[in-house]
Nucleic acid binder design. Structure first.
Length: 695
DNA sequence: CTTAGGG
DNA sequence: CCCTAAG
């Protein structure tokens, strides 16, 4: 009855409904376009730097005088957070900073003008995303060539600076473009594209390109603690960081403010330079993280999206752009050093033991091409077997365990430094092993010869890879047990490790490609390897991942946890792990707006609803609105006693019901019409057929 | 990308 | 909110 009564007034408002929707092509133009962000690259680089650090440590294997104040200012993410990694005598500056920082600066300046509120909006997931994107990119690129057998590695340092120059035949043009773009065009293009030459931008730009260290320019202080800062402030003494399964990602900033990027997004869009992680992208990343996405190269195509030409625009997966091959075609200064052992090993200069992990910018300029780190795996790349029994290969990179660092935005810069420091130190402190991967499987038997292991034939060297693996000396992570019962504390005795395994004889058939069924289920997580008892858990976990995908060599998430170098806040980690957006209950006013919009537009045009009522509320996607409507309808149907959360005024619920009823009916009609139309067609065809038959 | 719907 | 199939 009540409903009936409402009908009268309710439907009046629905007249608008007949407004035809604009053609999609038009509508799309309105949409805010988001592009890949440079910061992602930065994250990549930071990671890379860490990797490089590892390499360095490995090679030097000497005591570190952790005293000097090598101050590499690495700007990470949109955070105007300068990260000072103090380590060793060698500043972690250089490459990492150069490129990205300028964006950082831009952002910063913009913030200053706009609103310091936005400071909190810097996001971390972006970093994650980029990393993955980049890596994925590599993989997908290579995949074109090698089909299943690819692996990539975290590139040490100069990824963006032409590290891959040496041998890119096997990689896709996009990848070249990536190199190329980053190398020379990124920033400039951005500027040109935007025609913006605001002073800060210019300054930042040039300065960053020339002297990374200048990047420590003053940023607006992160003020805003009044809103959305839900994390307890973290004091220096307790770095709130954690390693989680986020691969290769360094997270900085608060965790639950994804959406707050929106505003930032808009800001940065002005420069067409950066963009916040889209939900979609997040999802992609997440998907990517999901094991199934590591099964093989074909699945990685999503990530072709990534484009590295300064992050100006994303490459869409379907787009295949083949250009600029030459540009990326290196004046490869592949510095080769031959080590005459049993085999001749050609390493790029940046390889292990070279100690040139951290090139100075100048050095990079001249040598970066030689310090590529990615293990060539594109087949005909640098790997080939000489006519004699020597195996020649180049090591462009090592995989390293990823670091996942997370600190609340309320954490101080100092604590951030410390956190990173701890992470790196712990990692290095654990002693690093080099692992050999062949055809996606770890070759554990050190006594085997190369030929015995099958690492000899010309065509399979591309399936050879190396990894850096943390040694067993690493402290056990405090969080293994809770979230991942299967994870044993890192310090756990080897026996424990074995006990969870179900295939105790694996190591005897390691080179056997047939012995690697996908291990995707949880129960099998730790079952794959029967490594020597001296192996670290990490090894095991790594293997597990490898067996999932021999094509892609990636340190599995578990690995990180096993490493768990940095004390982590479990709660944070947990939520972060889920990568789920923070729940944002709709306020009454929001509901009102939603109802209003739906009344006018109907229930089948969520995008329009979004545009109409929530255009400036970036954290409300049309899917959100749709979902909210769904729940609203549900809420309206249930008794008030069963409702939870902030009570929605009955008046609104009534409107919801009304609108729902109306639009349901409307949709039904549409369907009916359509159906009828179809029927008519069918009928007429039948007639014709009938006639035909009759004739 | 959007919609629609299940989870 | 997330995920996905479809379009």
């Amino acid at each position: 009855m009540v409903f009936k009564k409402r009908l009268d007034y309710g439907f009046d408002a629905f007249s608008v409904s007949n407004v035809p929707r604009a053609p999609r092509s038009i509508r799309r133009r309105v949409r805010t376009k988001r592009t890949v962000d440079d910061n992602q690259i930065c994250a990549f680089k930071l990671l890379a730097s860490l990797a490089g650090k590892l390499l360095e440590e490995k090679s030097e294997s000497s005591a570190v005088s952790n005293v000097s104040e090598g101050h590499g200012n690495v700007s990470i993410g949109k955070a105007v957070v300068k990260q000072e990694i103090e380590y060793d005598d060698k500043p972690l500056k250089t490459e990492c900073v150069e490129h990205l920082s300028c964006k950082e600066s831009v952002v910063a300046s913009d913030w200053t003008t706009e609103n310091s509120d936005n400071l909190k909006e810097f996001k971390h997931s972006e970093n994650n995303a980029i990393l993955k994107c980049t890596l994925a990119k590599m993989q997908s690129s290579y995949s074109e060539q090698t089909k299943g057998d690819l692996k990539f590695a975290i590139c040490k340092d100069n990824v963006a600076y032409g590290s891959f120059h040496g041998d890119l035949e096997g990689c896709s043009p996009n990848f070249r473009e990536l190199c190329d773009g980053i190398r020379d065009n990124g920033v400039k293009r951005e500027r040109e594209a935007n025609g913006l030459e605001s002073a800060p931008f210019t300054v930042a730009n040039s300065c960053s390109l020339k002297d990374p260290l200048h990047l420590s320019m003053p940023f607006p202080a992160p003020i805003n603690t009044d809103r959305d800062v839900k994390l307890p402030s973290c004091n220096d003494s307790v770095p709130n960081a954690s390693f989680s399964r986020h691969r290769n990602s360094i997270k900085l900033g608060s965790r639950d403010d994804d959406e707050n990027f929106s505003r930032f997004n808009k800001l940065s869009n002005r420069f067409m330079a950066s963009r916040p992680p889209t939900r979609i992208e997040d999802q992609r990343v997440r998907k990517f993280l999901t094991s199934k996405y590591w099964k093989g190269a074909p699945e990685l195509k999503d990530f072709e999206n990534f484009r590295a030409d300064g992050g100006i625009r994303p490459l869409h997966r379907k787009r295949k752009t083949y250009y600029n091959y030459d540009k990326c075609q290196y004046g490869t200064l592949y510095k080769r050093r031959k080590l005459f052992d049993h085999s001749s090993i050609v390493t790029s200069d940046g390889g292990i033991g070279s100690g040139s992990v951290f090139n100075s910018p100048e050095k990079v300029k001249n040598e970066n091409k030689s310090s590529s780190v990615a293990m060539s795996h594109g087949g005909q790349q640098a790997s080939h077997k000489s006519s004699d029994s020597h195996v020649k290969l180049s090591i462009k990179s090592f995989r390293i365990p990823e670091l996942y660092i997370e600190v609340p935005e309320s954490a101080t810069v100092g604590s951030l430094k410390r956190t990173v420091m701890e992470a790196v130190t712990a990692l290095l402190g654990g002693r690093i092993h080099v692992g050999v991967l062949f055809q996606g499987k770890k070759v554990r038997d050190d006594s085997r010869t190369l030929s015995q292991s099958g690492i000899s034939s010309e065509d399979n060297l591309d399936a050879l890879g190396f990894t850096l693996e943390p040694g067993p000396a690493i402290a056990p992570p405090p969080l293994c047990s809770e979230d991942h019962p299967l994870l044993l504390p890192c310090g756990a005795a080897p026996q424990n490790l074995t006990s969870t395994r179900t295939t105790p004889a694996m190591d005897t058939k390691i080179p056997d490609a047939t012995a690697d069924p996908p291990l995707l289920t949880n129960s099998e997580k730790a079952t794959d390897s029967n490594y020597k008892h001296t192996s670290s858990q990490t090894d095991i976990l790594t293997d597990q991942k490898l067996s999932e995908s021999r094509a892609l060599v990636l340190v599995p998430a578990m690995n990180v946890e096993a490493l768990s170098v940095v004390p982590a806040n479990q709660k944070i980690r947990k939520s972060e792990l889920a990568q789920r957006r923070t729940r944002r209950p709709f306020s009454v006013s929001e509901v009102e707006a939603l109802v209003q919009a739906v009344e006018e537009l109907g229930t089948g045009r969520w995008r329009d609803v979004k545009l109409r009522a929530f255009e400036n509320v970036d954290h409300r996607t049309y899917v959100d609105l749709k979902d909210k409507w769904k729940t609203l309808v549900h809420t309206a149907k249930i008794s008030p006693q069963q409702r939870r959360g902030e009570p929605v005024p009955q008046e609104l619920l009534d409107r919801v019901m009304t609108a729902h009823a109306y639009w349901s009916q409307y949709q039904a009609k549409q369907q009916g019409k359509h159906h009828i139309r179809t029927l008519r067609i069918t009928a007429s065809q039948a007639d014709r057929n009938g006639v035909m038959v009759a004739i």
